[in-house]
């Protein structure tokens, strides 16, 4: 296993492209080292991206935020502006693992690990986040939810890596929230999760919504039907009931050690509903 710590994204892409056997990107390492430990065949090359300046900071850009792929969750949590604009995304990323994990784990890593239960992904999908991909050719931007294509699989080609994630400028009266269900209070993988991102008009009526469900399908589920159940409403009880039902209907979970299909389906609706109420309040809506 060769270890390289290049200084630029270009150099990283070149290393990845030139790798003979398998190559892995090391950001926070909180997934990679666990996989190595659990008997994964060691990759021929590990590319540490933490020495790449362009990937190591949070920048304001066009009224939004560009978050480098090597930025650990803890640093995101300490950025006040980011937390104010996108509390749901910051909270989602802040839920990944313990304080110790937070010191290392990155949002981009969470995205590229492509776990169906990744905490930051539903929040990113709901936020309409855009991943910037560096590679041998030109940089390209794709919606965050298009990165993972299935458990452990991504749409990235050989030599490509996520360089940053962009969270766009928010219209006024917008709010987002993310909730997950775990059996404990911490240190668990979501059995079901939901990210909700809303914009309201002056009267508190929802004019735009994005709703994403996690851990209830092979990849994040962005549900237009669920979003539609919120648009045009003030999130009255009846609207929320329809919304929760739409979320449960959109969920396609499996039975596993983290819960039964029935349980996850039900809880996806419960959490989405609760997240919607938080997002609504954050957008300035009065419940």
């Amino acid at each position: 296993m060769r270890y390289e710590a290049p200084a630029t994204a270009k150099a990283a892409a070149k290393l990845l492209l030139g790798a003979k056997g398998s190559a892995k990107i090391l950001a926070g390492g909180t997934d990679l080292l666990v996989q190595l430990r659990s008997g994964m065949k060691p990759p021929g090359l590990v590319v540490d991206i933490k020495h790449i300046a362009a990937m190591s900071g949070i920048k304001k850009e066009r009224g939004g935020f560009r978050i480098g792929a090597a930025v650990p969750s803890a640093v995101m949590g300490e950025n006040k502006g980011l937390g104010k604009a996108w509390p749901g995304v910051v909270e989602a990323t802040g839920l990944i693992g313990s304080t110790q994990i937070q010191g290392r784990a990155t949002m981009a890593g969470n995205l590229c690990n492509a776990s169906p239960a990744a905490d930051s992904v539903p929040a990113l999908a709901a936020a309409g986040a855009v991943a910037r991909i560096a590679g041998p050719g030109k940089r390209r931007d794709i919606p965050a939810e298009k990165i993972a294509t299935g458990p452990g699989k991504t749409s990235l080609k050989k030599g490509e890596l996520v360089e940053s994630i962009f969270l766009p400028k928010r219209p006024p009266r917008s709010g987002d929230a993310y909730l997950r269900f775990i059996p404990r209070t911490e240190m668990d993988i979501a059995a079901a999760s939901a990210g909700v991102n809303l914009t309201l008009d002056r009267k508190g009526v929802c004019t735009a919504a994005r709703v994403a469900l996690g851990a209830v399908g092979p990849r994040v589920i962005l549900s237009a039907k669920a979003a539609k159940a919120l648009i045009g409403t003030r999130l009255e009880d009846s609207a929320l009931e329809g919304f929760a039902a739409a979320c449960s209907a959109a969920a396609t979970p499996i039975d596993d050690k983290r819960g039964t299909k029935e349980f996850k389906t039900h809880v996806a609706g419960v959490l989405a509903r609760r997240a919607a109420v938080i997002a609504y309040e954050r957008a300035g809506g009065k419940p």
């Binding site: 240190m187 668990d188 993988i189 050690k257």
Partner: peptide
């Protein structure tokens, strides 16, 4: 310890 959940 991730999925054998002792109290934290």
């Amino acid at each position: 310890f991730l999925d054998y959940r002792i109290p934290v």
